[in-house]
Structure formats: C-alpha cells, structure tokens
Design a protein around this nucleic acid. Structure first.
Lengths: 205, 205
DNA sequence: TGTACATCAGTGAACGCGCGTTCACTGATGTAC
DNA sequence: TGTACATCAGTGAACGCGCGTTCACTGATGTAC
C-alpha cells in the first residue's frame, strides 16, 4: 500500500548530481566556495536533501577524493609491478604522480592530504611508509642500491628528495598563482630527469 | 584642560602587545586561530580596541609579515651584491631562502603569498620578475650563461626549477605534517647542491 | 588643597553575515479497497 | 474506475555558532580654576 522507496538507480543519480555540483564549484572557485547552500543550489535541490544522501559535507567531499586516491594507489602499484629496473621504476612512479596531479589540478590541494592509503587514521608521528608514493620510491631505491645503480645514502632521505622536488615543481605555480610562471607539469618533468640523474651512479657505457 | 592623548610610546606598546598575541596564536595553532576575539583576549584587551590600533585584522597580520618580507628582500639583495661568481651567488640566494623559511616556519604559508616586493598589487598574469627570488636567480643565471658556467636553456625555466625544488623540499614536510618526514631545511640544503650541479656546466680542473 | 569637567583610551553588547545542520512539514506517488 | 491514505523524497525556515566589525558608553586622567 505504501509508496515504494526510490530505486537504487534514482538514489545513485541524485548522489551523482550533488557530487557533480560540488566538483564544479571546487574547480571553478576553490574549496571555500563549496558550501552546502552553493552545492544544493547548483544541483537544483534544497539544502536539507544533501543530508539524506551524504552524512555531511565532508562525506560528500571525501566521496570525490577517495576514488582518485585509490586510482593513484593502483597506478603506483601497477608501475611498481610492471617495471623491473629500479631506476626506471622510480621514473615511472614520479611521472605517475605528475600525471595524477595534471588530471586533478583543481583538487590537488585537497588531494594531497590523502596521499596515504584509504582508511588510515592520521596521527602525529605517523609512519611515512604509509605515504604511498614515498613507500614505493623507497622500495625502488633500496633495490637500486643493492644493484649498485643508486648512489649510497639513506633511502628515506632520497625518497623525500625526489618526491619533494617534483611536488614543489607542481605546487609552486599554483601557490603563487597570479604570477605567470611556466606550468607545473612541464617543470616537474624536467625535475624528474634532474633528480634521477642526481641519485644514480654513473655507469660507463 | 583635557586629558592629554597617549604618548607615541604608549601607542607603540599597545600595538606591540596585539602583534605579539597574534603572532603567538599563529605559531601555536595556525592562521585560522588568529581571530579578533582570540587576539584581543590574549592581549588582555577588549575586541574593539584592536580597531583603534589597526584598521582591521588583515592590517594587523600584514604588519607582522611585511617586515619579514622586506628583510628577505634585503638579504637577497645583499647576497646578490656580495657574491661576484654567478653560480656561487645562486647558491647563496637559495640558502638565503632556506634560512628565511627556517626563521619563519610558522608563518611560511602566509609569507609565501608575499614573496614579492611590498606595495605590489597582484594581478592575473603578473610578471614573474616581480617575485624577488625568481628575479635574482634569473639575473644570476643570465650572467652564468654569458660566462659559460651555466648550461643553456631558458633562464626563466631554470630559475623556476631551482626555486620550486627548494620550495618543495621545505614545504612537503609541512603539508603532510602528521607524518614524520625528515625536516625540510635538511632536505632543502641537499636539494640546493643537487640542483646547482644539474644546471652548471662541468668544468675540468 | 579641593573640585568640576573635558578628554580620550578602552569596553563589550550588538549587528549582520555565512556557515553546517536539523526537523516539522508538504505533496506527489502508488497501492488497497 | 474512483477514492482514501500510508509512504517517503524532498523542502526550507530555523537554530546555534563563530566570525569581523561598529558604536554608544564608561571611567580614569590631568588640567583649570
């Protein structure tokens, strides 16, 4: 006798509409523009409705970020598995990170906070091994050192050197936005070459 | 017959108290903790008083940042003037930037926005030459290329490569804060060496 | 020495704003009869 | 075929909060007399 509940498809479609609205606002005007009122207005629904599809606004934002993070995790894992040569693997890992940032520029700031495996609870003094890129780089560096292809030095430091250099190349133009610098990915690609050259041992041909 | 106005010293002392309160809050709990209520409470005055010493909260924060920026400007200018060798000058400029960041970690995020000469109005497509470090680096790179000590390539790109690498080394540990990475300045110092080696031509002894 | 009072540093309640979130309500829907 | 009604997606006014900012007021101060 009752009106039947909405189908799973209907609910999914509403969720999608809200997420699209939030993503557009974020891309167009930044994170601070993503408010409950703005999202619901753009999605063409009332403010209250958001709360029957997401537990709160953070939940909505997480639903946008998490799949990307998982994606990055997969891409890194794939690079790690596919490339046998440790130095080439380092290059692929770093370029994967660059590509990931290119595909998510607008969200990069938010995403950065999640460059760790899903479900991890961040604590002070958390182990850097839980940072996906860091951990993958370090494994490749260890292997590279064992094979004599990577110069000596603490691999944790080396991993951080690589990551932070590429990170800076990508982030700086965003941070000093109004200034017309060269685009981040272009500098980042050069940075990858420079840094890899600096951590490898010179092999004579 | 009237009560005389407060002396200039009295006014300066009150300004100082408010600025100290704001700086402490910023250092202890971040920029979002610096509210008019919090600042005035810590300074032991009422909220309204802040407005007879500063035009508004931004004015107070600017009064904290501006001197540091001017200081950095001087330090960079001094390095630029003191060191004749272009490559060594690049090293000194970058290490000056590292020292500056070390001395202003807690404010680094806020400061970054001001790494331009005072009184500049930021516009879209603003000339990167107005970014102090960038401009100094570029001049040194131009000179280094003319002397054959710096490898060929667009000096704007090279300047950005240098700056962004060092910036990333300093910023990454701050951005992924809860994770116990190596401290930024330590990696940054190594980054300076690595990057300078990458942009100089090999001179045989 | 005592008192009236003009001055002005300082006060803090109040305002308007935008935020996230809640919840009593609405009205379209599809079934049961 | 027509109607009563239980259901539930969706609404939007309202709440509480913290923010920056304002402004009518207070009361200590030092002078003038």
């Amino acid at each position: 006798m009752p009106r039947p509940a909405a189908t799973e498809e209907d609910r999914a479609e509403q969720r999608r509409r809200l997420r699209v609205a939030a993503a557009e606002l974020h891309a167009e005007a930044g994170l601070h523009a993503v408010t409950v009122r703005a999202v619901s207005k753009r999605a063409g629904v009332s403010t209250g409705l958001l709360y029957s599809y997401f537990t709160d606004l953070s939940d909505l934002m997480r639903s946008l970020w998490m799949p990307r993070i998982v994606e990055l995790g997969h891409a890194l894992a794939m690079a790690e598995q596919a490339e046998a040569d440790p130095v080439e693997r380092i290059r692929r890992l770093l370029l994967t990170y660059v590509d990931f940032t290119v595909a998510n520029v607008e969200t990069h700031r938010g995403l950065l906070l999640f460059v760790r495996p899903p479900n991890s609870t961040p604590d002070r003094n958390d182990d850097p091994e839980r940072l996906m890129l860091f951990a993958s780089l370090r494994r490749a560096l260890d292997e590279g050192q064992a094979a004599g292809a990577v110069r000596s030095g603490d691999t944790g430091r080396l991993a951080q050197l690589l990551w932070s250099g590429v990170h800076g190349a990508l982030a700086l133009p965003i941070h000093v936005e109004p200034f017309a610098l060269t685009d981040g990915p272009s500098i980042a690609t050069e940075m990858v070459d420079v840094l890899i050259r600096s951590i490898t041992t010179k092999e004579s041909p």
